Simulated assay, not measured.
Amino acid sequence: MDRPLHRQDPQAHWHQTGEQHRRLIDSTRSLAPLRTAVVHPCDGPSLAGALAAWREGIIIPLLVGPRERIEATAEALGESIGELELIDTPHSHASAERAVMLAAGGDAEALMKGALHTDELMAAAVNRRSGLRTERMMSHVYALDVPSYPRPLLISDAALHITPDLAAKRDIIQNAIDLTRALGIECPRVALLSAVETVRATLPSTIEAAALCKMSERGQIEGGVLDGPLAIDNAVSVTAARQKGLDSQVAGCADILVAPDLEAANMIAKLLIHLAGAQAAGLVAGARVPIMLTSRSDDVETRLASAALAMHLARAGRADGAGP
């Protein structure tokens, strides 16, 4: 459906929901599929998503979970999984541990969350004995296809770090930059969000934003251009940035939004999904392999886009979380 656009906004733009993600999926055609441990795919959406990614040539699924439940789910979907490898485990906790072991041992190049809680999968992944940790902290990155925004919009961290300190934010930013660069954006623009554009002693997020910008100048964060603090309107709207008189490479055209904390990032992402018609994909970066985290309510296209993100990150050689 055509939507009216604000005539005074030079950034006025509209595309169909999912159009950017479909291009992302199509861009994987020339890449070898990822051998992916699908963790506990014991419900229809998670198994269907894995099979769809397999048919698109994005992954080679290694199904990890209770054999009887997975086979029953496949039967209910009218699918045949006879040619896929299936590793039988008794329950979801064991599925998570076995899948992480496969990834740590090099038998899987990525992990895909199935019908288990995110906390259960991530507890296995971040365990110091798991072999998936790197010198960099893991963080979640949303990649949103927003119909009213002319480029993919990444938001972090909306799933793992509740109140990240400066060190965690440094890793959150570097992980998001690495993913964005893997998608072909050579120098991502990173907006460090707060409620205002000036540094204020009473607003800690503005002080941290200024410190992170200086860290970038000193080479502690590499591969992107940072600006902050920025209010969210000035991060994504050229008109708002001009009205505030901001002279910035980032303001009005951010590729990455870094929120002050998990609550803010989660609210921004979900508002864009539910009120702006955005389609969300996402994964955890900073581990030795990409970890695809999807919600049980996510549709097949969202799961395919998440798999495509993982494909690009892994094939770009940045899944190991190696930092400067």
Rank of each mutant, 00 (worst) to 15 (best):
A305H: 08
H117A: 11
T302N: 08
S237H: 02
G184I: 03
M101C: 08
R3N: 05
S216L: 12
L309R: 08
I70Q: 03
R23F: 03
D157L: 09
E83F: 10
V126E: 02
M137I: 08
H15Y: 02
V250R: 06
R3D: 03
Q243N: 14
I268G: 00
I155N: 03
L111V: 07
L309V: 08
L212N: 13
A307F: 03
L246G: 07
I25F: 02
M1P: 11
P66M: 03
R170V: 09
I59W: 05
L34F: 06
I87L: 13
P290I: 08
M311G: 04
Q249I: 05
C187N: 14
L230W: 10
K169H: 10
A103Q: 09
A125V: 14
A231M: 03
V64S: 09
L51Y: 07
D298T: 05
R242F: 00
L271I: 07
E109R: 15
V236R: 09
P290L: 07
R170Y: 02
E97R: 15
T89V: 09
R55V: 01
R128N: 04
I268N: 04
H21K: 08
P150R: 14
E263A: 14
Q279S: 11
L203D: 12
V300N: 06
D107I: 06
Q20M: 05
G57D: 08
H274E: 01
E186W: 13
V146L: 13
H91K: 10
R318H: 15
R303A: 01
E109V: 13
L154R: 05
A195P: 02
A240Y: 05
R35V: 12
D299H: 10
R296V: 01
L246T: 09
A210P: 10
A104W: 14
L203W: 12
I221K: 14
P204F: 10
R69F: 06
L203V: 15
D43R: 14
P10Y: 08
I185S: 10
I268P: 04
A209Y: 11
P188Q: 13
L262K: 01
Y142E: 03
L183W: 09
L257F: 05
Y149C: 01
A159Q: 01
R136Q: 13
A52S: 13
H93T: 07
V126S: 00
H274Y: 14
V238H: 11
T294G: 09
M292T: 06
I60W: 12
V250G: 11
L192Q: 12
G228H: 02
